[in-house]
Design a protein around this nucleic acid. Structure first.
Length: 104
DNA sequence: GACCTGACCAATT
DNA sequence: TAATTGGCCAGGT
């Protein structure tokens, strides 16, 4: 399976109401250093309908600037709609909402 | 066809 | 302990 495919699979496995970091997705995809590829893979986002890239945030729990795939902080609104809370810094409360990649 | 960049993170020195 | 470099894949020029 190609790295991109694996990354997409991992991202698709993220449950609603939770978020995952590039590092975790990359780690699950194979190597933690694939984080960069994860970001690029999401940038390509061939199937946004099945690839909730808005659930993927950086290790700080906040979203990147280029993340405005829909324009503005659209992804933040979507995450809020799922029940994800944000701090004053615009960061997600990873302690509570970071995907724990438990047994699927 | 080759080189460089690009939504990043982790390990090493 | 802190700062820096390295690494991976694919698309664009």
């Amino acid at each position: 399976m190609n790295t991109f495919e694996t990354i997409y699979e991992v991202v698709k496995q993220i449950p609603c109401g939770k978020v995952a970091t590039y590092g975790q997705v990359a780690s699950l995809a194979g190597n933690a250093r694939l984080a960069r590829v994860v970001g690029y893979a999401l940038h390509a986002n061939p199937d946004p309908e099945h690839i909730p890239c808005y659930r993927v945030v950086n290790r700080f729990g906040e979203v990147s600037e280029a993340f405005a795939f829909g324009g503005g902080n659209r992804q933040v609104e979507l995450l809020r709609a799922e029940g994800v809370e944000f701090g004053e810094d615009g960061r997600v409360k990873m302690e509570k909402y970071q995907w724990s990649r438990r047994v699927l």
